[in-house]
Amino acid sequence: MFVVASILLIPLLTNQIEATTTALLFGARALVSATFIVACIYAPEVYPTSIRGTAVGLTTAIGRIGGMICPLVAVALVAKCQQTYAVILFQLVILGCALSVVLSPFETKGKNLVDVFEDE
């Protein structure tokens, strides 16, 4: 979903009509929001019970802070007629998130939730 969201932003590197811009931004935002929801479901399966609340709470807080900073950066860049830089910034962040998902070493399929970390 991250990769598709990034692809939806590519046409915005050039000026588009307002309806196209709105549709592409809506699609990208929907996909990024969907991945956030998936992360909120997946993350508790990765962490053991002993740290699950803290770990999920901390990552959610960081995500929320990013959600507050993002509009400030986007508005500042667009207001200074730097829409291309705003789109590139968002694409880099989205692709960075996609890379972190691909490199995640955790597979939870068929595994039980753990209560504490076990030494491997």
Score class of each variant (00 low, 15 high):
Met1Tyr: 08
Met1Thr: 08
Met1Gly: 06
Met1Trp: 11
Ile7Thr: 02
Leu8Gln: 01
Leu9Gln: 02
Leu9Tyr: 03
Leu9Lys: 08
Ile10Arg: 01
Leu12Tyr: 05
Leu13His: 02
Leu13Phe: 06
Asn15Ser: 10
Ile17Tyr: 15
Glu18Trp: 09
Glu18Gln: 13
Ala19Phe: 04
Thr21Val: 10
Thr22Arg: 09
Leu24Phe: 10
Gly27Val: 05
Arg29Val: 11
Leu31Tyr: 12
Leu31Asn: 02
Val32Cys: 03
Ser33Val: 03
Ser33Tyr: 10
Ser33Leu: 12
Ser33His: 07
Ala34Trp: 15
Phe36His: 05
Ile37Gly: 09
Val38Trp: 13
Ile41Met: 12
Pro44Val: 04
Glu45Asn: 12
Val46Tyr: 01
Val46Arg: 00
Tyr47Pro: 02
Pro48Cys: 00
Ile51Val: 10
Arg52His: 06
Arg52Val: 00
Gly53Cys: 05
Ala55Asn: 00
Val56Cys: 01
Val56Met: 01
Leu58Asp: 00
Thr59Tyr: 08
Thr59Ile: 06
Ile62Gly: 04
Arg64Lys: 09
Gly66Met: 04
Gly67Tyr: 01
Gly67Ala: 07
Met68Pro: 03
Met68Asn: 06
Ala74Glu: 07
Leu77Met: 08
Val78Arg: 04
Val78Glu: 04
Val78Lys: 04
Ala79Phe: 05
Lys80Tyr: 03
Lys80Thr: 07
Cys81Asn: 06
Gln82Pro: 02
Tyr85Thr: 02
Ala86Arg: 09
Val87Met: 10
Val87Cys: 08
Ile88Lys: 07
Gln91Ala: 00
Val93Glu: 08
Ile94Cys: 02
Gly96Tyr: 00
Cys97Arg: 00
Ala98Leu: 09
Ala98Glu: 01
Leu99Ala: 15
Ser100Gln: 09
Val102Trp: 14
Val102His: 09
Leu103Ile: 04
Phe106Cys: 13
Thr108Glu: 13
Gly110Arg: 14
Leu113Asp: 15
Asp115Glu: 15
Val116Glu: 15
Phe117Pro: 15
Glu120Val: 15
